[in-house]
Nucleic acid binder design. Structure first.
Lengths: 204, 204, 204, 204
DNA sequence: CATGAATGAGTCTTCATTCAT
DNA sequence: CATGAATGAAGACTCATTCAT
């Protein structure tokens, strides 16, 4: 039984070994710059072995991409069903998201930089996920409006899109591109801008 | 001198011809999918001629990228020296930016999708431009604070970054990725969220 | 002994299983298009098992080829010792041969189309079999001359070669390549041409 | 002018150079055993150059095949419009055909041994040529019947098919496979069998 | 300057064969 | 004996770049 189990793990491990090697490579260089040979070498398997588990480089890339994306998506999803105040939830989302980015700087390069658009299938998958996230956020905002935590009269979709941009570009950009050390206070500062706006309330 | 000038113009024309052809190709497909042969064909010059003006495919790509990016950057820069109210300036920026995106959906794919990061030199150029834009925006916001159009106490950098994300990701994403018809009212709605925040002021 | 016997039978069965699967595959596609994996799958054995019984793909092919060829050869051999008239014997040969072709359209593709010539060893085997058949036929014809059923003065070897071509090319070609429905009358018609020639006897 | 002319010839020569090299290779080994690299080497051009003139190995093979086949077909066609007696025409066909085979022993291997059947397109081309030849021969035979040089009552198609087999297999087989020295007398002997049949006329 | 024929390094992918279990 | 996971040699094909004209 342990033997069988080991074998199963072994088989699973080999596929995972290759996938992880591929992810690492794709994080560093782009699709065309990464060769199957290199992936095989890094995974410490023969070139042919890669093809035992992935029918083509394209599929291997797609799986690498989804693998990276899933963790990212989870950082949003886990909060959509929360019960805290909306503002706290949003803070949590940004925080979780930031932590994830910090822990996976390189991994997220794949999401930020690679062009899933070359592969129609992946492109569609990405668009669907975007919609999913947007829906999650706008639902949250609508809830906020109902409980009067969020003001009435705002364009919910726009508010949602701006929140996603806040996470994706502001946080992601700072950490991944600008390589800035982002701390808790900055999350608070950013959310403060998002929550209260920048306008001088005396003006309106 | 006229001769030299003529030659330069002559050279310039052919160079531009090639550059424009390259831009068109890179807008449609990615770096590796575009071949020098295709660019030469579209530019209606011989393959060797491309190498008369650009030492390599990489350089040709970089110049194509900068060429596209410049127009984009201008849509921001032109407003940084304006004299209107900050809010009006921001509205103008978003509007100009949106028009640009709409008129150049495909062209902007290059900016949104291509991976300048593969080329360190270009990567740095992009980061510098990002800093330039951020500086322009934060200066604007600081001016706003001074004239009390913008409330004190906000994190100016975060406000600036969020504004850039608003343009780049929210607007860009809607038009280019989601293919949504974005109208004036939506700009207003989005800026309203950004300006007044989403929080119910009764709460604070 | 029973054990050995059982083992042999066991082995023989598995070997035959593989051989038959190989034949089926080689009948459909050519040597290079058929993979050992496919053969193993069709034989319902593991890939490694194929190598237990056949040292290489080449040997497996050779055995498949001979296996198919033997049945074909028998359709000739069985008549070489007959006691009927020569003409009747020839008719029987053609008839038997035609039935065999009809029943094994696909199987004979291997003989008609595969290139045994790539394998010197097989090439020689084929040449030897050709000689064997030619000898059988010329002996038959010589007997015919002796009993005056066949006219004197003919070149026996040429007559024999033409008879083989009649079977192999004319019959085979009609059935396998042209996919024509060949009936008894056509055998008679063809043999009539062969037996009486086409020349107007008044001429000579 | 001579320069231009030379260049044109040069270009033409290069394609022909490659085609001839390919033919030589395909005559020696089969489709899968021949590599593009080898063809390029024998043609004394770079590997890439082969692809400048032929889009794929398959196309190169097909053109090699047709190239070889055309010469063969001509050996038949040129006689179909002759004005001699039918028997003389047939003798001429066999003679021409034999000479061709002798002069191109190796070249004809391609026709005798390669499997055009792997390529449906080529397979159809071959079948059409077979029909063309058969039509040419049966027309000839029908003419012979009209002028009473050939006896009435024979099955014209069968007579035609047997004549083709006579050329293809008997002659081709003797020269190419059995490597026999075939002389004029043997043509006469073979045609005598075909013309007068083998049966003892006293019998019927 | 302009050209495009020629090139070959570099890739993905296949598959016969091996060998540890 | 039986297996099939693992392997890497081998091959078709692409394309940026060069250079003779």
């Amino acid at each position: 039984m342990p033997e069988v189990s080991e074998q199963k793990i072994g088989a699973g491990n080999k596929k995972e070994q290759i996938l992880l090697a591929a992810v690492e490579m794709f994080l560093d260089r782009d699709y065309y710059q990464v060769t199957i040979t290199e992936i095989a070498e890094r995974a410490e398997v023969g070139k042919g072995t890669v093809y035992e588990y992935f029918p083509s480089k394209e599929v291997l890339f797609k799986e690498s991409f989804s693998y990276c994306a899933e963790a990212y998506l989870q950082s949003f999803r886990q909060h959509f069903t929360g019960s805290s105040s909306i503002r706290a939830t949003m803070h949590d989302i940004v925080k979780t998201h930031l932590d994830l980015i910090k822990d996976n700087r390189k991994r997220l390069h794949l999401l930020f930089n690679e062009r899933p658009l070359s592969f129609q299938e992946l492109q569609n998958w990405v668009l669907e996920r975007r919609q999913e996230l947007l829906k999650g956020i706008t639902d949250l905002i609508e809830d906020g409006v109902k409980v009067k935590e969020i003001r009435t009269g705002i364009d919910v979709e726009m508010a949602g899109r701006l929140f996603l941009a806040l996470n994706y570009v502001v946080m992601g950009g700072m950490v991944v591109l600008d390589n800035v050390e982002v701390e808790e206070e900055q999350i608070t500062a950013l959310l403060d801008v998002y929550w209260h706006g920048i306008g001088n309330t005396l003006d309106n």
